[in-house]
Design a protein around this nucleic acid. Structure first.
Lengths: 203, 203
DNA sequence: CCATGTGAATGGATTCACAGCT
DNA sequence: AGCTGTGAATCCATTCACATGG
């Protein structure tokens, strides 16, 4: 769904002010009817015969998705992935503000990552409360993932972006979204494998 | 679907030799019927009254998904994400073998990443042909993403794992899987936002 | 005439329910 | 009893088709 935001933003940057469902569909790989259904959920924004006004829709979409505000974020686990995350440029532009980076390893605490000093987990609760942080990015090895998740939740975090290759469990009211590189690569390998085995015809 | 592989592998490592659809469902967040339907697609592997033999299913699943072989992989773009990828441990275990790392930036070419020397794009074709590589990981800025993708495809790559925040287009027969951190974070933010706004009741 | 919004139709996936095996 | 495999029923999402408005 946030793909809409990206596409509309791009078109706005290009100076486009109106767009039809057919155009959007072509860019996003969807049918025009699908676009209209999706946008229709946020109210009637389009003008029959003219299409949608990019700026209007963008504004409304951000509003509806709570994206008209800036989201403070904490990052836990400053290994290779954690460093990549803390220095990932696009976040800021999209309204995500990294307000603290943490690690459980005392050897890492005190070092810098993308200009930010890595803090100890004992500081987590204070930062979360002070900055009213609701989102946390967790880039730790799978062995410590569940316990770190528990710490995050205990500190008041209610949404975790998890990079560890396992399903972390969380109580009702806490959202988890996982990114798993291996799973993504496997999906890709499967698609490729399928493409190479369907020409011959599977049963 | 590859979540099955991961879960079953974990259970095998724990010394478990049989598993029921209900157990698997609980771990993966699916119903038992769903598990049976899915596994049933690969033939009748379960024994009524006894469940599934973990090793059997694992073997069969790998076979059916083309995962009984090792997949050579090239990585293009040795920035923060590229480095995280090249040093990401779980890949090797799951049968993905990084056989070459590349970058378009001459300043990066010749440096080392996770023990591997970064090579110039001009070497790409030779490596792909020699090692019969079909999969490529692309961790480059979005400005160069499409052109790098084209180079990969021209070199013979038929599956690209894309980390750039845009839809790269590819000809028929080439698979693209995208990982977009911002989109993932936005999904999370949306879920959290939703959870905080549905108790009060949306229209 | 072009494009939206929306009820109806379609298709696919998930769930139910149960027969049959151990 | 416990659990699989599978047709039937159900649900959800996408697509179609068209009436309506610019």
């Amino acid at each position: 769904m946030s793909l809409y935001l990206r596409e509309l933003q791009t078109r706005l940057d290009d100076g486009q002010d109106r767009v039809s469902s057919r155009e959007l569909g072509a860019s996003l790989g969807l049918t025009d009817a699908q676009i209209r259904k999706d946008l229709g959920r946020f109210g009637s924004l389009g003008q029959p015969g003219r299409g949608y006004q990019v700026m209007e829709v963008l504004k409304r979409l951000r509003q509806m998705m709570g994206r008209d505000q800036s989201w403070p974020v904490v990052v836990v686990g400053i290994g290779n992935i954690g460093r990549a995350i803390t220095s990932y440029g696009p976040f800021k532009r999209e309204g995500f503000d990294i307000v603290g980076v943490f690690d459980i390893d005392p050897k890492v605490v005190g070092t810098k990552s993308a200009g930010r000093t890595v803090r100890a987990m004992s500081d987590l609760r204070a930062v979360v409360h002070e900055r009213e942080v609701r989102l946390g990015v967790m880039a730790v090895p799978k062995e410590s993932a569940q316990s770190v998740a528990d710490e995050l939740i205990a500190a008041g975090i209610v949404g975790i972006l998890n990079f560890a290759p396992l399903r972390v469990s969380a109580p009702e009211g806490v959202s988890i979204v996982s990114v798993d590189f291996t799973v993504s690569l496997e999906q890709l390998a499967f698609q490729v494998w399928l493409a190479g085995h369907t020409e011959g015809g599977v049963d």
